[in-house]
Design a protein around this nucleic acid. Sequence first.
DNA 1: TGTACATCAGTGAACGCGCGTTCACTGATGTAC
DNA 2: TGTACATCAGTGAACGCGCGTTCACTGATGTAC
Lengths: 227, 227
Amino acid sequence: MTNDIEAVSHWTGRIVDVPRISQQQKDSNRARILTSAGEGFRTRGIDGIGIGEIMKTAGMTHGGFYNHFDSKEDLALAVLREGFTGSLDLVASIVSAHPDSATAALHAIIDIYMTTAHRDHPEDGCASAALVADAGRHGVEAQAEYARGLEGYLAAFTDLLLRIADQTGDTLEPTVARERATALFSAMVGALVMSRAVGLADPALSGEVIAATAKELKASASGAAAR
Amino acid sequence: MTNDIEAVSHWTGRIVDVPRISQQQKDSNRARILTSAGEGFRTRGIDGIGIGEIMKTAGMTHGGFYNHFDSKEDLALAVLREGFTGSLDLVASIVSAHPDSATAALHAIIDIYMTTAHRDHPEDGCASAALVADAGRHGVEAQAEYARGLEGYLAAFTDLLLRIADQTGDTLEPTVARERATALFSAMVGALVMSRAVGLADPALSGEVIAATAKELKASASGAAAR
DNA sequence: TGTACATCAGTGAACGCGCGTTCACTGATGTAC
DNA sequence: TGTACATCAGTGAACGCGCGTTCACTGATGTAC
């Protein structure tokens, strides 16, 4: 069952689901595999879910997988690339929603990132947090994709910190802004992954980790120039 | 081959390696399994290495595993418990090596934690960083072990920040100290796992992440009271 | 002290299972004439 | 416009492999008498 179209079989005369694959349909199927894999990999890790289940979630049988990807590793690379693009687009959209105040934009990012909702739904959350361990344990190509994404995050946060300094009239060297952006993003990712590591067993501690870190990061970003 | 003792077989007359298992020997074998599993799990993830390879590294064949542990999951719980104990002991030993200055102790911890050596050797590094993703993807019992360890880290860092404030004459509420300790440890763990995620593909970025975060954290801890 | 026997840790073959991957097949699409 | 045929995406059975786990066996240890 690759689509919802019914047709009368020329051969049997019975009404059956038949494949009717156009290039557009193929592209759509590939996108569904990618979405399914992105969610599965983020939730259970690259080694934690198989091709069969990914394809089933995408609405196909497992054999057709290799019409779209060379291997599971190839799929993982595509998920990393696609995943970071989506995450960075979200950051950019939050920033452009606060054109007047870079501080408000940063606070909005932190408030969206550091939530129990984000903690509980890695499947459509930040790629950097959900896939950080998988990237470290896979090959150099996966790490290269992760590096590209991480660089995107650091560039976005560095730019934001520079704009905050500019708007508040403080002086901030670009190299220092980049260092602070690195520490900031490290804390966001670290808090989120640790809150996920204890979410089931100790919800109070889990919530405390993200809330306390968010509070500190917002205070730190506002008062950075005063340091 | 469970030990290095040779003996003459009563039955064949040939010199063979024979098992000669005392309680002490059994305890030692269990400890070797635990060490081997701790290193394997940290480096490649709980799902990334099998019982067979763990037992081989420990110098035994795989069948004997179940004389020591009920299941692989049981082993993972033991690794988490043992691993955090070791990590927290190391933190405590660094602290007691700097009895005069809590600031010096914190800087020493950061300088040991945020290094390329620690990044490149998860097998004998911090349990919280190496196993954070595995804990999040395993059951509630694994998360409970992780939570116990995380609580130990947060308590240790909170105590250290309070002692720094005390020694510099600043006032610091315990609840605020705990929040700052949480953000601090989140940044340490986040920076380390991200630096591992790009270590092979982009050593420059990888080194930058730990160096920049370490620098920021030390500056932030020293100037925390001034904020 | 010596002998018989129960205990139990380690060995290595075997189990069922799920995985990533391959492959023969089906049938709709697109092209050639 | 209609017919014949090459193309190729999806199906589902099958493959080899490694995994976690089980089990019959071996032989040293410890205990009973």
